[in-house]
Design a protein around this nucleic acid. Structure first.
Length: 937
DNA sequence: ACGCTCACG
DNA sequence: GACGTACGTGAGCGTA
């Protein structure tokens, strides 16, 4: 359709400035991969435009379109009122460069792009909308700015592109309580805090609409103000009449803006495919470029996938060459290395030890690297003979400088605040050095740099990182140490081999650092790395070195008791089964129950078979089966005892350090993708508590003589974070009141008053609350509650109804994850969810993980922050922080100082979110004390 | 080495 | 409409 704009024509006016501002705040801080340029708002803008172009193929398609921008900050309104928009905050730095890019995007789509000095975009929009209406055509204003609502009606409509909702005259009535022609009157009275329009003090939109509807229009109202019955209102209107009239002028749009173009200039034109694709590719919008290319029948332009690093050294150019590594054997050689380190100001450091347990391992040698390819190994206590020489002496190998001398030379450098020490998993090396009284600082950790950027994408061990980022497979350690009984420790490795292996580790670490350091910033996770990862290293190192006292006799007695019970159970089991078998074998249990005895579950079915074709005999299956036969219950009891004995009472004894009498776990910082820690060797984060029998194992974790154990744990931290993130007012209020949160949910869902709550109804609500955190599904809830799937789905529907924020959160999170392949915590931690893009059940897993990760991850961030602040907070108290169990911290304190410790630690924990994140829900911490962990919890 | 089971939050 | 699911971990055992 062409010719002069008129009947049958349809004009789309896009409020460009408002849109990018909103997109900037609503969308994540997306950056261009190659150089880190912020482009989130541009991306949102382009997606919106493309969606419109796609949508607009139907009969309602626009014939004319323009994007309107603000220009300059001074307009005629500032001349009328110098306070107009005076409280606007400065434009965020990340948004500024995106403004011109948005204009370029508009041009790339071949859409008219208009602005005028001294006028707001709204005035131009008003002028064009009125022109369109007077010409007999239609106009859709794509904006959510309420100031534009005065234009609606008679062929003019508004469309909120982000919410995809249309606003017509009735919509305006709903919003303002009056029809569009009286919107300015209402706005004049109500004022506007965003634009700093004063209005009438104490009068909001509701009252304003009431008054306008009663008196017809603003002028009449002001003239007859003396007739108003309410004294306060009457006086306000009389007193502020001038201010109200000024306000009306400010909000009234100028629909007579002089323009140097006509509606006909805005006719829709097809974009030029090459121009558009070139722009989108330049912005590196992969998905959108692909879609546009497909739609236009063009080939997708290539977008480089790897970030260009103009400043980074060309690491690829320097090959790995193990023969070039140096063995440092005397003081003068070491001094040269130290000089070189002071020259550059940093050094990659790696320690070699006699084992992997930092508490028992001894320092064997140290490797250093100062530039790619330039690395050395300082062997310190290597033995002259290999370990498999039965009569081998303990003589030291030749070519080593004395340990004391080397440490004397290295310690000042390792502790020098001006020298950055770079490590891969620095906690390990820091603990080794701490054992000999050396505090390594400051430091960087390549493992944590990788984790901050790529949690969820891949592991962060040295081998993985080297292969992935350096395209180099490190020398394997296995052939040097051997395996099994004949394995030797590193001090027995011949020096020639040791130098190559050890120096290479430092070389790799240095190269990784050069690569990963600049990327931290581009991925916008520098703060995560610097505030949540790196500072945790010394804190955890100290906790691990402290360890917790475990009473061997208690464990040993329990082991014996468990053994006896198990023997008795075994007799009953064999009796019931009709023959002897290995009770610890799920495979044999399955054969006995489902083949030989031919038992069936209460629903008449048999359980699923696993991947290996064996019957599933998990606790839930046996639990169901216990209703039809006695054997499954006995097996369950046996299994529980077996678990407690083998995993806890037996195994824990082997972890008691003979020197300290304590158990020293190791926390992995970069293990769990969500930001949680993981505890290994032994895992002290899964010590039993849920059953009485298991709980007693905690009695073996005791305080030292004259001391007390103190446990502080966050109350419902994940649900509180959910209430905040998903914006659930009912949940927030309940937490504010201190309600029983599961009972409240139950009351809300099942319409049962709190006073009449039964444990069973509460139990169901609790399951649903947790289900939500896990990315609820009808199937999962049904299985958990053992109810029909339809009923479970009914619960979920009802939950969404009562807490509508949940659905929005789940949908938004999935959409975000699909678009970005990661989700974020409130503190900016990124958790990648690559599988979200896959098809089939994998996508379901990924979606639920994506829903859970921001909640679990934010809770993890909170306790990390508390732990990082804790050493300073309790520095004056005779107390040590010993363990972390996700939402709990366990301390050991001298008797008499328990209350002081609780006060100090609680203060830190309850305010750990401050000041970075403001939470709508208060965090609360429960505390307990006791001589053992069971009492303290 | 891998699957199964089960301990924790 | 079917698919197959609760999220995140680590350890010990049996089985290949």
């Amino acid at each position: 359709m062409s010719g002069t704009f008129g009947k049958g024509h349809h004009l789309h006016l896009i409020d460009g400035s408002a849109f990018i501002f909103r997109a900037f705040h609503a969308l994540p801080p997306l950056t261009r991969k190659s150089d880190g340029l912020p482009i989130g708002a541009v991306s949102g803008f382009c997606n919106m435009i493309f969606k419109m172009v796609e949508d607009n193929r139907g009969p309602d398609a626009p014939t004319h379109v323009a994007v309107i921008f603000d220009k300059g900050s001074h307009t005629f309104r500032n001349d009328m009122y110098d306070q107009y928009k005076a409280n606007r905050e400065a434009m965020p730095e990340e948004l500024r460069p995106q403004i011109p890019l948005t204009r370029r995007a508009t041009e790339a789509f071949n859409i008219a792009c208009k602005e005028k000095e001294g006028y707001e975009a709204d005035d131009i929009i008003a002028t064009l909308a009125v022109q369109a209406r007077e010409a007999g055509g239609r106009c859709t204003i794509i904006s959510s700015d309420k100031d534009l609502m005065q234009l609606v009606g008679d062929g003019v409509e508004m469309l909120d592109a982000m919410k995809n909702t249309r606003i017509d005259r009735e919509g305006v009535l709903e919003k303002f309580g009056v029809y569009p022609e009286h919107v300015v009157d209402v706005q004049a009275l109500a004022g506007d805090s965003v634009d700093n329009v004063p209005g009438a003090p104490g009068i909001g939109i509701k009252t304003a609409a009431l008054l306008i509807n009663e008196y017809g229009d603003l002028e009449t109202l002001l003239e007859r103000a003396s007739e108003i019955k309410q004294p306060k209102r009457r006086e306000t209107l009389i007193e502020h009449a001038d201010q109200i009239r000024l306000s009306r002028k400010l909000v009234l749009l100028d629909d007579k803006t002089p323009l140097d173009f006509t509606l006909d200039d805005l006719e829709v034109k097809e974009p030029d495919a090459d121009t558009l694709l070139a722009f989108l590719a330049e912005m590196e919008f992969r998905t959108l470029t692909k879609r546009v290319a497909e739609q236009m029948g063009k080939e997708m332009p290539t977008i480089e996938d790897t970030p260009a690093l103009p400043d980074a050294p060309q690491i690829d150019d320097i090959p790995f060459d193990a023969d070039k590594y140096e063995q440092v054997s005397d003081a003068s050689a070491l001094q040269k290395w130290i000089d070189a380190i002071y020259e550059v100001g940093y050094v990659a450091v790696d320690t070699e030890t006699t084992g992997l347990n930092e508490m028992t391992a001894e320092l064997v040698g140290i490797s250093l690297a100062t530039e790619p390819g330039k690395a050395c190994y300082i062997p310190l206590i290597h033995k002259a003979n290999r370990g498999n020489d039965l009569f081998g002496s303990d003589d030291l190998a030749e070519g080593q400088m004395p340990l004391e001398q080397a440490l004397e030379m290295l310690t000042p450098m390792l502790e020098d605040p001006s020298i950055l020490k770079i490590g891969q998993n620095m906690k390990y090396d820091a603990k080794i050095f701490a054992q000999i009284g050396i505090t390594v600082a400051p430091f960087d950790d390549t493992m944590l740099m990788s984790y901050a950027q790529h949690a969820g994408l891949h592991g962060h061990g040295m081998d993985t990182l080297s292969e992935r980022y350096l395209n180099h497979t490190p020398i394997p350690i296995k052939p040097l140490l051997g395996s099994g009984k004949s394995a030797i420790t590193f001090d027995k490795v011949p020096l020639e081999d040791a130098v190559k292996y050890a120096a290479e580790d430092a070389d790799i670490t240095l190269r990784l650092w050069q690569l990963l350091k600049p990327q931290l910033h581009m991925a916008q996770v520098t703060r995560v790395y610097e505030r949540l990862e790196r500072p945790l290293v010394p804190v955890l190192a100290q906790m691990e070195r402290s360890g917790i006292k475990v009473d061997r006799d208690t464990l040993s007695r329990m082991s014996n008791a468990f053994s006896q019970k198990m023997v008795g159970l075994e007799d009953e089991i064999f009796e019931l089964a009709g023959r002897k078998f290995s009770v610890g074998s799920p495979k044999q249990i399955g054969e006995i129950l489902f083949d030989e005895m031919d038992l069936e579950l209460p629903d008449g079915k048999k359980p699923k078979k696993g991947k290996s074709g064996a019957w599933s005999t998990g606790a839930d299956v046996l639990e169901d089966l216990a209703t039809v036969h006695d054997l499954p219950r006995r097996i369950l009891d046996w299994r529980q005892l077996d678990k407690l004995k083998s995993t806890y009472t037996d195994a824990l004894q082997n972890h008691i350090n003979p020197d300290t009498g304590r158990v020293h776990t190791s926390y992995s910082i970069a293990g769990a993708s969500t930001g949680r820690l993981a505890s290994t060797d032994p895992n002290l984060q899964n010590i039993p508590i849920r059953t009485e029998e298991g709980r007693r194992i905690r009695e073996a974790f005791v305080a030292e003589e004259g001391k007390t154990l103190v446990a502080l744990d966050y109350s419902q931290i994940e649900l509180r974070i959910l209430a905040h993130i998903a914006d659930l007012p009912a949940l927030k209020d309940a937490f504010a009141r201190g309600d029983d949160i599961h009972a409240m949910t139950a009351s809300e869902m099942f319409d049962v008053p709190m006073e009449e709550m039964t444990p069973d109804i509460r139990r169901r609500a609790k399951a649903i609350n947790f289900g939500v955190i896990y990315g609820i599904s009808g199937f999962g809830l049904a299985r958990n509650l053992r109810i029909p799937r339809a009923e479970a789905q009914g619960f979920i529907d009802r939950y969404f109804e009562r807490f509508p924020g949940i659905r929005t959160y789940m949908d938004d999170t999935k959409t975000f994850a699909k678009e970005h392949c990661y989700v974020q915590t409130l503190f900016g931690r990124k958790i990648h969810t690559p599988e979200i893009a896959s098809k089939g059940p994998r996508a379901g897993f990924a979606a639920r993980a994506a829903i859970n990760a921001p909640i679990q991850g934010t809770a993890a961030d909170v306790i990390r922050r508390a732990m990082i602040r804790m050493p300073d907070a309790i520095a004056d108290l005779p107390a040590k922080m010993l363990l972390q169990v996700h939402d709990e911290l366990l301390f050991e304190v001298e008797q008499g100082s328990e209350d002081k410790l609780i006060d100090a630690a609680r203060e830190v924990m309850e305010n750990a979110n401050d000041p970075v994140v403001k939470l709508d829900v208060k965090l609360t911490v429960d505390a307990g004390t006791g001589q053992n962990w069971a009492e303290a919890h």
